[in-house]
Each structure stands twice: as C-alpha cells, then as structure tokens.
Design a protein around this nucleic acid. Structure first.
Length: 415
RNA sequence: GCGACUAUAGUUUAGUGGUAAAACUCAGGUUUGUGGAUCCUGUGUCGAGAGUUCGAUUCUCUCUAGUCGCCCCA
C-alpha cells in the first residue's frame, strides 16, 4: 500500500512539542508585554467575507484573487481565510463605535493565511501579534505603540543594538513632494515604490531611475532622503525622551500601499545574516470607513512569529528546552501501574505536574529517560513502597533523596 | 509570474559508472530495583519516470518536491 506523505501542506508548519514550546514562549512574551501596557485581547474567526479585503480598489482585488485562500461556500458566499487582521478589527471597532470609550488599546494573536511563493521568512500560514490604539489622534499614541513593539523585543532578551527602529511619515512626505510641485498621486506612488528599493540598489541606479520619473526634482529628493538619518521629528524625540535611542528617520521607508496616512515604522535586525524587517506598522485615519460613517483613527503594528523566531535564533535568544513533567513516577513492575497512578494523582492534586512512565523498559533505562526528559524528580513505586506506604523522591539534578509518606512528599513539592 | 540551486538511513551529511558509508537520534540488549557512559544489534526501491551503457545512486532528459533569490508584501 502506498502511504500518504507525512509532510504538512505546502507553506504551513507542524508544531511538534519542541516547536510548540518555542511558540508558547513567543505567545506568552507577546501577551505579557501587551498586557503590561494595558492592552486587552480580542479575536475573531479566520473566515471573513472576501469583500472586506477587496473593496479598496482594483489593486486590492487583484491581491485578494492571487494571494489569498478564497473560496465559495455552499450558500454561494465568497469567503477568504484572513490574510491580515486590520480589516477584521476595523469591522469589530466599527460595530461598537458608539459604545466604546476611546481611545481603546487592543491586541490579538491571529493565525493568518496568504497564498504566496515560499522563501526564507515567508510561509503561507503564520501567527502575528497585532497591537492597535484606536480613537486617538495624539502623536503620543504613535510613540506608545512603537515603545510597545520595542519593549516586546527587550522582553525576549534582545539588546537595543540588535535592532534598529526606522520611522517615516506619509504626511510629511506628501508635504515635501508638494513643496517641489509634485502632487500627482501616480508620480508619488512611483517615487515611493522606488524609495522602497533605495537600500537594495546602487545609489547611481536609484538616481537614474528617479530622474526618469521626475527629472527636475530628482536631486532634491535624493538629498532629502540621504539627510533623513540626521534629522528628527516628534516621534523620534518622544521615543528618545522615554529612553529609546536605537531609532532614526528613514525617508525611503514605504510600507507598501496600504491604508497608512501618518507615521510609519519598521524594525530591522542589525545582524547582517538576518538583515530584514521584523515588524512594521503605522497610523491610519478613518480605519472604519468601510463599515460606518463614524471615522475612527488608529495606530498599530503587526509582528509575525516566523520572523520573531528567526530573530531569536539569529541572536541566540531561544529558550532552553522545558520539561513536560516535574515528577516522573517509575514502576518496578507493570502490576504496580495503578499504584503509580494513585501516587501521581496525589501529586497532581497539589499542583505538581506528574506523569507515570508506563513504558516496558528496564528500570535503569527509565531513570535515564526521566533524566533526559528534563524532569526534576523521579519517584519509584514497587513492592517495598506499596507495602510500607513510604516513598523516596529523588532529585535528578543533585542526586539527593527525600523519603516519607506521599503526604509529606506532596507537601515538600507543593507550589 | 521569472530565475538559480538541491534531492543518499528517522536527522545531518560523505561517497562512487561495478552489490552504499559515517555521525547523531530512536528502539532493544549488555544490566532481575535507580543516571546522559561503554560495547553490540536494528532500519535505505540513493525523490519518480525515461534514456545512454554490459552495468546508472553516479552521466543526460522530463517530472515532482524542497530551498534560496526576483516580483509582490495588506
């Protein structure tokens, strides 16, 4: 018989226990940090009506058709597996726009799906921390959201030198282009698209292409762009004031062609082997326009688990392997297995994670396996222990033993 | 959508136009109630199909899968 492949579907991942341990560490750090800033968690289904992704024009329609998982359900509704969280949360905010006490701080860790060509750091399914402040037009909201992203990396154990925050502002850029007499959206889009490649291509090539778009203003745009790392704005000054200094203005920063209307930012890994954007976000006006005439603004960011994992791996910040149980109960013979479960139930009852080794290995192998698993203690159950009602708890790290009734031992281990 | 590279044991890799290796992992034994050791044992249609050849895992072609880039990146 021909068997099915054991590989997961293209572009998605299996989480074996050791992978899941890392995943939990990432999720825990994400939510702990967001909640330390007073953010509240929300979530929604992975299924959304396709139109909430399409309704931003032909460009979006094309994106949805080519880069999402979209299908028609049995009721002839067009459905999409959510590729991003922002339209969903915009829908939810709009639904309650009259009863929410703005500003609100919300976060979520959604599973997102994109039909893409896979490559390093890009898969078809990932998890993303999404943090947003809705309903505040104060620049301090922009500063706080960047500070939250910064603190998240710090809480993973990162040093500020390991990454760099690049900030730009859509409105400032628009004003700058207008000061040069450029107001044509199409031209600005072309310039922005080229700017996005600024760090990837040669300076002379950049200038040559820029001259093709806008011959008269090319030199001024290049100069403006090159001096940006020397300059500052309200956001960078605010970040410096709260002790965040690995930040600079980068006027080449583009962030695609999404809904951002003000501040935009990205965090870059400074390690050359992982030199890529780790997270990004920005400010948008009237996020809720699709759903209601109540205009609600927002500022937020998204940070993926895949890029986070790459970052932690690159900088040696992945956590050490964690044990599945603190105590492993070992039986000398199979006939004691129920006695073993009784012992385990006692320990679990006082909050000690306990498992019973029900394998058929020999005693020595079981001890070795327990040690290998990272458990803290073993407790052997056999003829003597059951008849006497006294047990020996052995600490695997230092070899010390503690003996007594189950009650005594449970007391000693209780958390 | 375009391009490059790769495919050998569970994993990571060596290797050869003439019957395929190592390390690690795992399982069992060495060891009848106590430690990551030692030693022994175990597992492969060399990605699939076709061609060249006396003979192909090795060379050629096609396909498939994966990786990495470009494009795009909400």
């Amino acid at each position: 018989m021909k068997h099915l492949p054991t590989e997961p579907y293209k572009g998605v991942r299996d989480f074996y226990p050791e992978d899941m341990a890392v995943q939990q560490h990432i999720f825990n750090t994400w939510s702990r940090t967001a909640e330390s800033f007073g953010f509240e968690r929300y979530d929604a289904s992975v299924l959304e009506p396709s139109e909430i992704y399409k309704s931003k024009g032909a460009e979006n329609e094309e994106m949805v058709n080519e880069q999402t998982y979209t299908f028609t359900d049995r009721g002839d509704r067009e459905v999409t597996l959510r590729p991003e969280m922002t339209p969903t949360v915009a829908r939810m905010i709009a639904g309650k726009s009259k009863e929410l006490a703005f500003p609100v701080r919300w976060y979520s860790i959604p599973n997102l799906f994109r039909y893409e060509r896979t490559q390093r750091g890009r898969v078809r399914e990932h998890w993303q921390l999404n943090c947003d402040i809705f309903g505040s037009n104060d620049i301090v909201a922009d500063i706080e959201i960047i500070a939250l992203a910064y603190q998240t990396l710090i809480n993973f154990g990162a040093q500020p030198e390991m990454f760099e925050i690049r900030v730009n502002d859509r409105r400032e850029m628009k004003e700058f282009y207008e000061s040069l007499g450029i107001s044509d959206e199409e031209i600005i889009t072309k310039i922005t698209r080229l700017n996005d490649r600024f760090h990837k291509i040669d300076r002379s090539l950049y200038l040559a292409e820029l001259r093709q778009i806008t011959p008269d203003s090319a030199d001024a745009i290049l100069a403006h762009l090159e001096e940006s790392s020397q300059s500052e704005n309200e956001v960078t000054r605010g970040l410096n004031a709260v002790g965040i200094n690995n930040v600079k203005i980068d006027r080449s920063l583009a962030r695609g062609f999404d809904y951002y209307t003000g501040t935009i930012f990205e965090f870059f890994d400074t390690d050359p082997s992982n030199n890529r954007s780790m997270l990004g976000g920005g400010r948008y006006d009237n996020l809720t326009g699709l759903f209601t005439s109540e205009a609600v603004s927002g500022v937020g960011f998204g940070m993926g688990d895949v890029t986070m994992r790459d970052f932690l791996d690159t900088h040696g910040l992945l956590p050490a392997k964690k044990a599945g149980a603190q105590v492993i109960v070992i039986l000398t013979e199979e006939r004691f297995n129920i006695d073993g479960e009784k012992v385990a139930m006692k320990l679990r009852g006082v909050g000690v994670p306990t498992l019973v080794d029900i394998s058929t290995k020999k005693l020595g192998k079981k001890v070795a396996a327990a040690d290998h698993s990272g458990a803290g203690y073993i407790l052997v159950v056999g003829e003597d222990e059951v008849s006497r009602g006294e047990y020996v708890l052995k600490n695997l790290a230092d070899g010390t033993e503690m003996s007594g009734t189950l009650e005594d031992l449970a007391q000693g281990l209780a958390v």
